[in-house]
Write a protein that binds this DNA or RNA. Structure first.
Ligand SMILES: NC(=O)c1ccc[n+]([C@@H]2O[C@H](COP(=O)([O-])OP(=O)(O)OC[C@H]3O[C@@H](n4cnc5c(N)ncnc54)[C@H](O)[C@@H]3O)[C@@H](O)[C@H]2O)c1
Ligand SMILES: NC(=O)c1ccc[n+]([C@@H]2O[C@H](COP(=O)([O-])OP(=O)(O)OC[C@H]3O[C@@H](n4cnc5c(N)ncnc54)[C@H](O)[C@@H]3O)[C@@H](O)[C@H]2O)c1
Lengths: 212, 212
DNA sequence: TTTGTGCTGTTAAACGGTTAACGGCGATTC
DNA sequence: GAATCGCCGTTAACCGTTTAACAGCACAAA
């Protein structure tokens, strides 16, 4: 039962390792990976141990094998298919980002209410009307949804998604969604993140004598 | 010295309280605020105590006063002015969001290298060339920056910002930035967030018998 | 005025996560 | 082949955060 933070780090490790692999690295030491990830060597070793992989002394971890082990641990029995709810400014930005990069997860369907968006292909992803939601989620085996609709629509959309059998959501709307147990929700709130940065930047600046 | 989590919750409280205020609520109880924020009543009381505000028994917290107290605690001596680096898909989405909503922080200047974006006003925010960076950061008293440039440009941009005296950054590029001590960086990585959702959604679904 | 109720403020305990320490082993070198 | 070095795996301690428990008080009702 790993913590959320541990899962986040493992995901980060995998991305860093994939990049290192393309740069020709066959082995990495715990302190090297820690340096890339902004963690400590002890934490890396602890995380790696928790997924059951083992490196060798003096050689470190085999990059390819470690990537594979993280995948076996992180990649769930759920399908990798994602639905995007709301193809507005943020939704289109996310689609464009996924079109360029190729993560382990894939956005296979988008949904919107605007008639001029429905049935169009945006950044390689088809946009559907909400009536098709249930059927497409079933046929495409979609388990995860990204919520990028206006705040007032977020809860109704979440309800619909839960009824359709969605298991997890990444919510960008500044609302705390009410979902039944068994559905996982993670919030991304840029305003809160900015206020956090502002607070700690101010404190750090005071310590450094930049201001005050 | 509050933790990052505490600051995030305080910021969330303030937004919830502001909304409650517009809906006519003059007082709130700890368990009510906890319900809105997805926390526990004990945690709310603990957080409120940490900022030095006190409510009254049977009445709870005065919404307006509590908002004010959170503001006195969170709002740093830093100016509320933010710079946006990179006016691409994500940058424009963020600008449009800030143009609609009115948070405590404000994006007062944007920067890009594309000639057709420079000197144009996008969602009410003027886009400048990088040559003007240092001067505008000084004259506009900008302390915080949002990084929405391609991954390959993120570190150079971060270096430039640090030299210009920026105290904090919110980084959307999938790179871990190297910055001097005294500069606070927070990362928002959508891919990692999605993988986290996928992992825990899969686990929860297993527990609920939705799959497997 | 007096009593009762339910909330807050505070302190303490429990929990989880991070960090440190150390034994063991593989590789390398002499 | 032996010894040395350095890194990994594991356990334990430490620290911080969350959670719980309780005393005190303000308001309402009688
Ligand atoms: N733009 C950003 O950078 C940003 C940042 C943080 C949070 N957010 C949040 O993300 C959400 C979307 O932001 P945006 O800037 O893309 O807004 P937007 O208005 O540009 O886009 C919203 C889209 O959702 C569609 N929509 C409306 N109701 C719908 C429904 N019931 N079902 C499906 N689609 C529906 C609209 O047609 C529109 O295309 C908002 O809640 C916003 O607060 C945005
Ligand atoms: N689009 C998303 O939803 C999303 C999500 C997560 C992360 N990201 C990350 O955010 C960053 C931006 O994403 P995007 O989709 O907006 O990319 P984009 O290519 O659409 O926009 C990047 C912008 O940065 C500008 N730019 C390039 N070099 C610059 C420099 N040196 N200084 C200033 N501006 C410069 C470009 O001209 C362009 O306008 C990327 O690192 C991306 O990986 C994007």
């Amino acid at each position: 039962m790993p913590s959320e933070r541990t899962v986040e780090r493992l995901s980060l490790y995998r991305h860093l390792l994939s990049r290192a692999l393309t740069e020709g690295a066959a082995h990495v030491h715990s302190h090297q990976l820690a340096g890339m990830a902004g963690a400590t060597a002890a934490q890396v070793r602890h995380d790696v141990m928790s997924i059951g992989y083992s490196g060798t002394p003096t050689q470190g971890y085999e990059v390819e094998k470690l990537i594979e082990s993280i995948g076996e641990f992180l990649d769930t029995p759920l399908s990798r298919n994602i639905a995007l709810m709301g193809v507005g400014n943020l939704g289109r930005a996310i689609l464009s980002d996924f079109a360029v990069r190729r993560p382990t997860l894939k956005i296979v369907a988008a949904f919107d209410v605007e008639p001029d968006r429905v049935n169009r292909v945006i950044h390689g992803c088809r946009c559907h009307s909400l009536e098709e939601l249930q059927q497409i989620i079933w046929t495409q085996q979609i388990a995860i949804a990204i919520i990028a609709v206006p705040a007032s629509e977020a809860q109704p959309i979440a309800d619909t998604l839960c009824e359709a059998g969605i298991c997890g959501m990444l919510n960008f709307a500044p609302v705390r969604l009410q979902v039944p147990q068994g559905v996982f929700v993670d919030d991304v709130n840029i305003t809160i993140a900015l206020e956090k940065v502002s607070y700690f930047a101010g404190r750090k600046a005071l310590d450094r004598g930049r201001i005050g």
